[in-house]
Amino acid sequence: MKSSALATAALVLGLVAAAGAARAEGDPLFEVDFSNPGLVPAQWTLELRADGAGHFRTVRGSAPPQGEVEGRDIDRDIHLSAQFAAHVFHVAEKKSLFKNGCDSHLKVAFQGTKKFTYTGPAGQGSCEFNYAKDPEVQALSDSLVSVATTLIEGARLQTLLLHDRLGLDRETEVLVQSAADGRAQQIGSIRDILERLAEDPAVLERVKRRARMLLSKADNGA
């Protein structure tokens, strides 16, 4: 009797796990790959699901050092707001999953190669571009680059907290300015390091003040 009950429980757990895996496979996935060998990092990838969960990875590349202290390559799970994720997938579906090409082929300055890829129940599609021919796709690209900026800044803040606390003064000032003009978006994605800075007695008071200001912005959906 006991072994039968255990076997039944194991079967139920197996079915639940299989159902969860099936749902995960059926969930839409958006991915943007960015590369620009002149920048640090030179390449990054952001994966995003419809609920805002995702993953972010960077590769430094071979560009010259940009300061005495650099953040390490990033490889971590992230969470963006559901509203932002909904907008990403809305644009992807509205633009036919990017199947019709994105690049404007205009002679504009190189801004980095972006590749958008959508995979999900609606189908699969991708496109690659420097500057998009569609204003909505270009606006989405700008927003995603701004999110990546936030995540990269968050990693840099963590490195500075460990190795150069005085450097936090300038870095948080830059981040506040970037958040104000839209160059850094989804500030809540780096909430953990901002909360540490806001409460750390060993950092400058103005650093703590800026961290609290950014956390307030994150609470308001920025």
Rank of each mutant, 00 (worst) to 15 (best):
M1E: 15
K2V: 14
S3R: 10
S4E: 05
S4A: 04
A5F: 02
A7C: 05
T8N: 02
A9L: 09
L15D: 15
A18L: 12
A21V: 06
A21I: 12
G26I: 08
P28K: 05
V32P: 04
L46M: 14
E47T: 09
H55T: 11
H55R: 04
F56I: 07
F56L: 05
F56C: 03
A63Y: 10
Q66M: 12
G67L: 05
G71R: 10
I78E: 09
I78S: 07
S81L: 03
A82H: 05
A86F: 11
V88E: 10
F89N: 00
F89W: 02
F89H: 06
H90A: 02
V91D: 08
V91I: 00
A92S: 00
K94W: 04
K95Q: 12
C102G: 07
D103S: 09
S104W: 15
S104Y: 15
V108C: 13
Q124F: 09
G125S: 10
C127T: 08
F129N: 10
A132M: 14
E136A: 13
E136C: 12
A139I: 04
S141M: 08
I152P: 04
E153G: 04
L161D: 05
L162F: 09
L162Q: 11
G167D: 02
L168R: 01
L175H: 05
S178K: 13
A179L: 11
A180R: 15
A184K: 05
I190W: 14
D192A: 09
L197F: 03
V207M: 05
R210D: 00
L214N: 02
L214E: 08
L215N: 03
K217C: 01
A218S: 09
A222Y: 05
